[in-house]
Amino acid sequence: SEEEIREAFRVFDKDGNGYISAADLRHVMTNLGEKLTDEEVDEMIREADIDGDGQVNYEDFVQMMTA
């Protein structure tokens, strides 16, 4: 549901600035027990970053979650 997606976005957007940065993503993945290299984190950001601004905004996140 849209509310679940919004809630998930809030979990990833640690600093609440409306964007998921590589640092935000790394933090959440580490908490989930996933040890990722910087390259892996950057690749995840690139794949999710639809508009190419280097971070994942809510619209990018929705597209990723509903793809």
Rank of each mutant, 00 (worst) to 15 (best):
S1G: 07
S1I: 08
S1Q: 07
E2S: 08
E2I: 14
E2P: 13
E3F: 11
E3D: 11
E3K: 09
E4I: 10
I5L: 12
I5T: 03
I5E: 00
R6N: 02
R6S: 02
E7N: 11
E7K: 13
E7P: 01
A8L: 10
A8G: 03
A8I: 05
A8D: 01
F9E: 00
F9V: 01
R10M: 07
R10K: 09
R10L: 04
V11L: 12
V11D: 03
F12M: 05
F12I: 03
F12H: 05
F12Q: 02
F12W: 06
D13M: 02
D13F: 02
K14Y: 13
K14P: 08
K14E: 05
K14T: 10
K14W: 09
D15Y: 09
D15H: 08
D15A: 08
D15L: 11
G16D: 05
N17G: 05
G18K: 02
G18R: 02
Y19Q: 05
I20C: 03
I20K: 00
I20H: 00
S21G: 04
S21V: 03
A22G: 05
A22P: 10
A22T: 13
A23Y: 05
A23V: 10
A23C: 07
D24F: 05
D24P: 00
L25E: 00
R26I: 09
R26V: 10
R26A: 04
R26D: 01
R26Q: 06
H27E: 09
H27S: 09
H27P: 02
V28L: 07
M29K: 01
M29S: 01
M29C: 03
M29D: 00
T30D: 08
T30S: 14
T30V: 11
T30W: 11
N31G: 09
N31E: 11
L32I: 09
L32D: 01
L32E: 01
L32Q: 03
G33I: 11
G33A: 10
G33L: 13
G33Q: 09
G33C: 15
G33K: 14
G33Y: 14
E34D: 12
E34P: 14
E34N: 14
E34C: 15
K35V: 09
K35R: 13
L36K: 06
L36G: 02
L36N: 03
L36H: 07
L36P: 04
L36F: 14
T37D: 04
T37H: 04
T37I: 04
T37C: 05
T37Y: 05
T37L: 05
T37A: 05
T37V: 04
T37P: 05
D38V: 11
D38W: 11
D38Q: 12
E39D: 10
E40C: 13
V41T: 04
V41N: 02
D42S: 10
D42G: 07
D42V: 07
D42N: 12
E43W: 15
E43L: 14
M44G: 01
M44V: 04
I45T: 04
I45F: 11
R46T: 05
R46V: 04
E47A: 15
E47C: 15
E47W: 15
A48E: 03
A48H: 11
D49G: 15
D49R: 15
D51R: 13
G52W: 09
G52C: 09
G52K: 12
G52F: 09
G52T: 10
D53H: 10
D53T: 13
G54M: 04
G54H: 05
G54C: 10
V56D: 00
V56R: 01
N57W: 15
N57G: 07
N57P: 09
N57A: 12
N57C: 14
N57S: 13
E59F: 08
E59L: 09
E59P: 02
E59T: 05
F61S: 00
V62M: 10
V62Q: 02
Q63A: 10
M64E: 03
M64C: 14
M64N: 05
M64D: 02
M64T: 05
M65H: 03
M65L: 14
M65R: 03
T66Q: 08
T66W: 06
T66F: 14
A67M: 07
A67L: 06
